[in-house]
């Protein structure tokens, strides 16, 4: 089965006036790096939260690897939220223990290797690390898993260009090639070179789902330039 994610008629309405995701149907394959793109308020984070079981859809369904969202899918999805979700009181190696206990696909050796390459001491407490270093620790935790699906919500936002390069290299060098990586970002120019496919969202609706090559061939533009044209204010 080549399809990894199957979304059917997915809607999330917070109330009658606020429909964050509106009747989306989408099938995403395995082994691709997919950019989830759209302006603020387009429903990207809501869609990501539903994929991770953090929000319950108002209507429609999601299946990952043929399973509805639940314990089974969470065991195979590696999620990087757009915020620091680790307790500041914990040491990095305590967090590694935590991930080892809960995720069978987590490689402690791989995580230690990446931490060492960045000069991050596993004995340091999270609240002693800078914002950028915390983000790198979180990325290392996610990319040290041999997951079927990696969902990265704004992984390069708020970090310097050198750190962005490191993050992109980490994603490319560590993800399981048979897995799918779904990246939500505003910084399209920085990640365009790693994307296979793109999803454009606006006002909670699916605007476009195509390959990066298609965008370049059909519109004669980079994804970044095409995004600016489509979402011009």
């Amino acid at each position: 089965m080549n399809n990894l994610i199957e979304i059917r008629g997915l809607t999330k309405a917070y109330d009658a006036k606020h429909i964050a995701v509106n009747n989306i149907s989408l099938t995403l394959p395995r082994g691709k790096i997919i950019g989830l793109l759209g302006p603020n308020g387009s429903g990207k984070t809501t869609l990501i939260k539903m994929l991770n079981g953090l929000l319950t859809p108002t209507q429609g369904s999601i299946r990952i690897g043929g399973q509805p969202i639940g314990v089974e899918t969470k065991a195979h999805v590696a999620y990087l939220p757009d915020r620091t979700y680790l307790s500041g009181n914990k040491r990095v190696n305590e967090i590694l223990d935590f991930f080892c206990d809960f995720y069978e696909d987590f490689s402690r050796g791989q995580a230690i290797g990446m931490l060492q390459s960045l000069g991050i001491d596993p004995a340091s407490r999270m609240n002693t690390l800078s914002k950028g270093t915390k983000e790198k620790v979180q990325l290392i935790l996610v990319m040290s898993r041999d997951a079927d699906l990696y969902i990265l919500d704004e992984p390069i936002a708020g970090v310097d260009p050198a750190a962005r390069d490191y993050i992109l290299r980490t994603i490319l060098n560590n993800y399981n090639p048979s897995a799918t990586v779904l990246i939500s970002t505003h910084l399209i120019g920085d990640i365009e070179q790693v994307l296979d496919e793109v999803i454009f969202m606006r006002y909670g609706c699916l605007l476009l789902y195509t390959s990066v090559d298609n965008v370049r061939e059909q519109h004669g533009k980079s994804v970044d330039a095409y995004f600016r044209e489509v979402f011009a204010c």
Partner: peptide
């Protein structure tokens, strides 16, 4: 924010 970890555990 810590709930993001709690509720995505398998």
């Amino acid at each position: 924010d810590q709930g993001y970890l709690t509720h995505t555990l398998p």
